[in-house]
């Protein structure tokens, strides 16, 4: 009951956030984004045709009316049709979000799980060669451009110049075998880069926790390392870990990964979002921005509830 009441309160308190995000992003779209009109014209347009396209796009309406329409669309989750392809925006998202999720989830999970494990190693062997090796590797992973990693991995694992084990590109998934085949190289590239950031972050969280009095006391009482790490360190470090993971989820779901999708020819939401940004496809952009804001509110709620689950001292008020 307490959680339900809190959730309702929290969702209501998220409305100003959603309004703020949608308003600012809509101002940017309308006044600073690309003008779609000029991409929809023929080669030799007349002023009348330009005016007609603007009417079709709704650009002739006052800003307030257009913003009100946006809010109505967000409330009803009906964003109409893409200005580029004509496809229904809800169908577009329903088609692409699962693909992005299936693409990014393995990298996301592995990047975080391996990051935590490596961070535990590094923290446990702090200041030894193990720690230094892991941290140096992390810095290397962080320093190399994601683009270079993608191209490099594509050549090494997929192309005829390298091992040629996996498809260079595409997403023709009809079986679990196909899935692993197509997702392998993107996942390796994602993990390679994410691991560096994750390991460094988690290590600093764990090291900080290791220096606390209760850990020192536990050590003095002879608590074995496994129990010490699990009960005294990892559990108490879960607040920042949960925050980092949960707040990454909306980006994983909605934003996908433009570079991965683009280089590997995967029809996910990242690519359509990028295309919408550069072409000024406002119906798609409005949907992506609005849904991301909503997901962040939900992520915030989920984070608070999870805080309570891992730390009973936290109350939902």
């Amino acid at each position: 009951m307490e959680i339900l009441q809190y959730s309702i309160r929290k969702l209501f308190s998220g409305i100003p956030l959603i309004l703020g995000v949608t308003f600012i992003s809509f101002v940017l779209m309308v006044y600073f984004g690309p003008d779609k009109t000029y991409e929809l014209l023929g080669k030799n347009p007349t002023p009348e045709e330009i005016a007609e396209v603007r009417v079709q796009l709704g650009y002739d309406q006052p800003f307030v009316v257009r913003y009100a329409d946006y809010l109505r669309e967000l409330a009803t989750l009906d964003f109409g049709n893409s200005d580029s392809t004509g496809e229904r925006v809800d169908a577009l998202l329903a088609r692409t979000i699962p693909v992005s999720l299936a693409l990014t989830a393995p990298g996301f999970v592995l990047g975080n799980v391996l990051g935590i494990l490596l961070a535990l190693f590094a923290a446990y062997y702090r200041s030894t060669w193990v720690d230094k090796t892991i941290m140096a590797s992390a810095v290397i992973g962080m320093s190399i451009s994601f683009l270079i990693v993608i191209i490099g991995f594509q050549i090494i694992f997929a192309s005829s110049y390298g091992l040629g084990w996996f498809p260079v590109r595409g997403w023709s998934v009809n079986s679990i075998g196909d899935y692993f085949s197509y997702v392998a190289v993107p996942t390796m590239a994602t993990v390679f880069v994410a691991l560096g950031y994750n390991t460094r972050f988690y290590r600093s969280v764990l090291v900080e926790e290791m220096t606390r009095d209760h850990v020192r006391t536990a050590k003095a009482f002879g608590v074995p390392p496994t129990k010490l790490f699990y009960k005294n360190i990892l559990k108490n470090s879960l607040i920042p870990i949960i925050t980092r993971i949960v707040f990454s989820i909306p980006l994983v779901i909605i934003s996908g990964s433009l570079l991965i999708e683009s280089y590997f020819g995967i029809p996910g939401v990242g690519k359509i979002t990028y295309d919408a940004i550069v072409s000024g496809d406002q119906p798609v952009l409005k949907a992506v921005v609005g849904l991301t804001a909503i997901l962040f509110v939900l992520a915030q709620l989920l984070t608070d509830i999870m805080y309570r689950a891992v730390d009973p001292r936290i109350t939902l008020k």
Binding site: Q154, A158, S160, V168
Partner: peptide
């Protein structure tokens, strides 16, 4: 991306 196009082309089965 030209590099991805070329890699796919020279792969042989794409």
């Amino acid at each position: 991306e030209a590099s991805a196009r070329w890699s796919s082309f020279t792969k042989g089965d794409e």
